[in-house]
Simulated assay, not measured.
Amino acid sequence: MSIFDQISSAVHNHPTVKNMADKLGIDQETAEKAIASLTEGHQADGDTLQVAADKSGIDKGVLSKVMEQVGGEGSLTGFMQMLDKDHDGNPLNDIAGMASGLFGKK
């Protein structure tokens, strides 16, 4: 399961995300997708907004507004920390571990 999928799952149907979506005039699904792609983009090389736009297909203007609403680029680290179960600063190994568990390999 990718970082995008993990974050999408964590924010899916969250009332705060719904409120943010309503405030910005976008649907909740777009808001969820924006948060997930921004979080993934924050971990990738390059410009966070550009990576997120390329990943999601969402306009950079909308992504920028979502990022402002969640507290700016620094807050995206918080979403990554939700996935970092062993608190080693690298959520990717935890996601890989979750994925291997899904396929019965450890």
Score class of each variant (00 low, 15 high):
61 G>T: 09
33 K>W: 04
54 D>E: 12
7 I>E: 03
11 V>G: 03
71 G>D: 05
43 Q>K: 07
72 G>Y: 10
85 K>M: 14
46 G>M: 13
91 P>L: 04
8 S>V: 00
79 F>C: 00
85 K>T: 13
86 D>K: 08
12 H>Y: 03
72 G>D: 04
41 G>I: 01
97 G>S: 15
57 G>V: 03
104 G>W: 08
61 G>L: 04
86 D>A: 09
67 M>I: 09
2 S>I: 04
55 K>N: 06
79 F>I: 00
34 A>S: 15
25 G>W: 13
11 V>W: 05
45 D>W: 12
70 V>C: 04
103 F>G: 02
51 V>H: 06
96 A>C: 01
36 A>E: 09
16 T>I: 14
93 N>V: 14
100 S>H: 14
18 K>M: 05
64 S>F: 10
47 D>F: 03
77 T>S: 13
41 G>D: 02
30 T>P: 05
104 G>Y: 03
99 A>E: 15
6 Q>E: 15
46 G>Y: 09
24 L>D: 06
58 I>N: 08
76 L>C: 06
40 E>H: 04
61 G>P: 00
69 Q>R: 06
96 A>Y: 05
98 M>T: 06
7 I>Y: 06
98 M>F: 07
81 Q>G: 07
104 G>N: 03
31 A>Q: 00
65 K>V: 00
86 D>E: 11
87 H>W: 03
75 S>R: 15
80 M>Y: 08
89 G>Q: 13
84 D>N: 11
30 T>W: 07
23 K>A: 12
94 D>L: 08
77 T>F: 10
15 P>T: 12
56 S>D: 12
4 F>M: 08
73 E>C: 01
45 D>E: 15
91 P>Q: 02
19 N>W: 00
98 M>S: 12
94 D>G: 09
54 D>Y: 01
101 G>W: 09
36 A>P: 10
50 Q>K: 12
25 G>R: 11
83 L>A: 14
78 G>M: 07
75 S>V: 07
88 D>Y: 07
31 A>T: 02
16 T>W: 10
70 V>Y: 02
89 G>C: 11
10 A>L: 14
60 K>R: 09
95 I>N: 06
36 A>V: 06
15 P>K: 05
11 V>E: 06
58 I>C: 07
16 T>Y: 07
72 G>H: 13
90 N>G: 11
90 N>M: 06
76 L>K: 09
98 M>L: 15
56 S>W: 06
24 L>W: 07
20 M>K: 03
74 G>M: 15
21 A>P: 02
84 D>R: 10
31 A>S: 08
83 L>G: 11
8 S>N: 05
29 E>V: 11
37 S>F: 12
92 L>G: 01
105 K>L: 14
88 D>E: 09
46 G>Q: 05
39 T>K: 00
82 M>H: 10
43 Q>L: 14
31 A>H: 01
8 S>W: 00
68 E>D: 07
37 S>R: 04
16 T>V: 12
36 A>H: 08
100 S>L: 15
10 A>K: 04
55 K>C: 00
71 G>M: 07
72 G>V: 05
12 H>P: 00
19 N>V: 00
17 V>M: 08
39 T>S: 14
71 G>Y: 09
22 D>R: 09
17 V>F: 03
35 I>Y: 07
